[in-house]
Write a protein that binds this DNA or RNA. Structure first.
Lengths: 239, 239
DNA sequence: GTGGGCTTGTGATCACTGTCACGATGGAAG
DNA sequence: CTTCCATCGTGACAGTGATCACAAGCCCAC
């Protein structure tokens, strides 16, 4: 581990990576990880870097070692939908790589991050020669499908925008919420604009809904922290 | 091949199945297919049969040998969204089986169909012992993720319902459309209600939009055939 | 401090589409 | 032929949320 550009601690070798055991994909046998070490390229990206763009031919797969990435898809009119916030440990671009079809989404780093890249040919060969890697990839893909399915539910079944927002908050609470006496606490790292893009609405509507939630004491904002009344939010979603 | 209940020609052995070579998942080496033959259970289902229901613990995976299945997800209020129409050759329930999480969707056969079932334990062992099966499963999952992503785009980025309907028709045209002098021709096998459930709207709106499309000469309906003016539809979607 | 960018807050307006209600159509069964 | 049930067609109406427009914060660099 050493200090590099953008203040990111980089793990130069997967074999000795201190996070390996806690990362679903990377947690593989020594031989497999060694091979991965040989074919991967490590890079450190600043915030805002774009790993790949929707529609591009797949060059390879990206493994997020640290940091978070925003996966988006957008229409010709410039409307953007944030499909998912990918966390450390996730593999991006695997489905496009495996199928040989263009990337379905764009990926942009939200924080300075370390990312490992594996060229598509190398990755496919790796899957063929290392069953464990293939199995872990299948798990990654399953997780991606699972989360896409949640997104579809939220977009397609919500009656109202407030329901979508409530669903989003509940999701956040599940993922990073910290239970306190004042409700589930979490840091809001996105702007209203970005929240709007996550639930497919406009910035103004998000602002209005947030005011409304505050007025109804469903949420409370203190600086960059937000306290959620989980039961109240759950009452708003139909599921 | 022999004739069985519900008038479905069944393929009792994968090894000798006449469709094997054209099915992405089943098109595997002899040894692998032989193993699959040993662990699979073949069944023939009538139209309307439910293979599994959203939220159930995964019992195993289903391989559609013939026929089509409707994958749906629904809210507590009874609103239903058709996520996808799965065709012969597709593997259902793989992601839930691999992750050990509940099925994300429900699957209901739209036609009398042959379906092979593999118990979850057997399937997982199969993936572990047969790298080729694992690779093909990864491909199946990639395809599922890809189509889920399309669905997300359509649901989240469309400005209007007419745009969603146009997108759906273009999808159909891509998949099963037959180019004729009067436009892309396809059979409409779904009711307005089902179309509505595919694009997350109501039956009435679909009816109204179809009238509108007919009036504007974007589509023409003759019996169960529909002729589409693809360029006009493309002009309606923002993509 | 002070200016300038990015954010957030809020009002007014209006097209779209969900909802309810009812009637028409059409195919299958008897 | 008639009945029945699923599907389709259509009107009226109200609520939601998109759009536009502008004001007010807020943070950072200079």
């Amino acid at each position: 581990m050493n200090n590099t550009p953008y203040n990111v601690d980089t793990q130069n070798h997967c074999e000795s990576c201190s996070f390996r055991s806690e990362r679903q994909f990377c947690n593989m046998g020594t031989a497999t990880v060694k091979r991965m070490d040989e074919i991967k390229f490590t890079a450190v990206y600043p915030k805002g870097s774009v790993l790949f763009v929707e529609g591009e031919q797949p060059r390879g797969v990206f493994i997020i070692c640290s940091g978070r990435a925003k996966l988006t898809t957008s229409s010709a009119e410039g409307k953007t939908l944030i499909v998912k916030i990918a966390e450390a440990g996730e593999v991006l671009g695997a489905s496009a790589g495996i199928l040989g079809t263009p990337y379905e989404v764009s990926a942009e780093m939200l924080e300075p991050s370390q990312v490992n890249f594996i060229r598509r040919e190398d990755f496919m060969a790796f899957l063929n020669s290392h069953p464990e890697a293939c199995l872990h990839t299948a798990q990654q893909l399953s997780a991606k499908y699972h989360s896409a399915q949640r997104e579809i539910r939220s977009l397609g079944l919500s009656q109202s925008t407030s329901e979508k927002l409530a669903r989003l908050f509940l999701d956040w609470s599940d993922r990073t919420g910290e239970t306190t006496a004042k409700g589930s606490r979490l840091k809001v790292l996105l702007t209203h604009e970005e929240i709007a893009q996550m639930i497919g609405t406009t910035r103004e509507t998000v602002t209005r809904l947030l005011s409304d939630f505050k007025r109804r004491k469903i949420i409370e904002v203190k600086g960059s922290s937000m306290f959620l009344q989980v039961p109240a939010l759950e009452a708003m979603v139909s599921i």
